[in-house]
């Protein structure tokens, strides 16, 4: 791993206050993203992938609160930063693209102006030059006839085009880290591949690190160098992609891989993971939040989870992991 990561999240915990008690949405989440590297955050709905991203971006819902942890972007701890410091970083050094691009764009502002707003805000372009620069951004994300499209509203565009506009907005200030939160959800399959290629190409071109959030393990396998598997607000496993697929050590990861359509020969072989996410409001949550669904549960699981050094190559949060194997040549390519 490179010595100076683009982003280092250490021990992040987030709590949501609700009417029926506090929800401990994230607990002790740690991972690193090296410069120029693509890391995937993978997990089922409610596992805390998006909350991690929102906490890092400082755009958590008002009910959510960071209770512990650091998120280091260079020397700046994003979680302890003043609003002014955050404003300086958000959109300029870290940018984010969201799922459902149609609703993620301002419905009553022409898309060109939305890009121009960001360009002007981050000060690299004058108010007068911004519209032309916005058209250039649209061209860069592969929109045909960008001068005309710049004047269009989001409702006049397809979902794929809206996502291209989102990418243009996110990359307007040439950030060093891009967080893509399920960027292809709500797009049709052919568009999905095109959008993912676009993000990869632009990330390479700008030397940008990417955090790719998805529930699709197969897609994560194709697109990222490292995968962080999350379950119920915990990081359960964090390993280089090839290693993770060849040698999953956490029982949850193993079941996830078995539940991925790609790896099953027929529908009968396709496994379902027993049980569901535990209710995070419970006061008696076990230290390992997977233990109640886990086929490999042992007595030691009642102890606090093992902690790992943040730079461990293959981290697994389990007292009874699957045995480590000699890594054979991986069949899944790391993008």
């Amino acid at each position: 791993m490179t010595p100076a990561p683009a982003l280092s999240v250490e021990g992040l915990s987030v709590e949501f206050r609700t009417r029926s008690g506090a929800v401990r949405a994230l607990e002790n989440v740690s991972f690193r993203v090296a410069k120029g590297e693509t890391v995937a955050l993978v997990g089922e709905s409610g596992s805390g992938k998006s909350v991690t991203a929102y906490a890092v971006m400082g755009i958590l819902d008002p009910a959510g609160r960071v209770t512990a942890g650091r998120a280091m972007l260079g020397d700046l701890d994003l979680l302890a930063a003043t609003p002014k410091e955050l404003a300086n970083v958000r959109g300029r050094k870290i940018a984010m693209i969201f799922q459902n691009p149609r609703t993620a764009l301002n419905p009553i502002r022409p898309v060109g102006r939305q890009i121009a707003d960001v360009l002007i805000c981050h000060g690299n372009v004058s108010r007068r030059a911004a519209p032309a620069q916005a058209v250039e951004m649209l061209r860069a994300v592969g929109i045909t006839d960008p001068a005309r499209r710049a004047k269009a509203y989001p409702f006049e565009m397809s979902g794929g085009m809206c996502q291209r506009v989102m990418i243009a907005i996110a990359l307007a200030a040439k950030p060093t880290l891009l967080i893509a939160d399920e960027p292809t959800t709500g797009l049709d399959v052919t568009t999905q591949a095109v959008i993912m290629d676009l993000i990869n190409d632009l990330a390479k071109e700008l030397g940008m690190a990417t955090i790719f959030i998805t529930h699709d393990l197969a897609l994560a396998g194709q697109r990222s160098a490292r995968i962080v598997v999350m379950h119920a607000g915990h990081v359960v496993e964090n390993a280089p992609t090839a290693d993770l697929f060849a040698n999953p050590r956490h029982p949850y990861t193993a079941e996830l891989i078995a539940a991925t359509p790609d790896s099953a020969a027929s529908l009968d072989e396709l496994a379902a993971i027993a049980g569901s996410l535990p209710d995070l409001r419970r006061a008696d949550l076990p230290p390992c939040r997977y233990s109640e669904r886990c086929p490999r549960k042992i007595a030691a699981c009642a102890q606090p989870l093992p902690l790992a050094a943040p730079d461990a190559a293959h981290f697994v949060a389990c007292w009874n992991p699957l045995p480590a194997q000699v890594v054979v040549a991986p069949t899944v390519s790391a993008a």
Partner: peptide
């Protein structure tokens, strides 16, 4: 969603609250 986008792209509080 689009206000969240505006915040995440670092637009000023005034732009987010009034313009968006």
């Amino acid at each position: 969603d689009f206000v969240r986008t505006a915040r995440a792209s670092g637009l000023s509080a005034y732009t987010v609250i009034i313009t968006y």
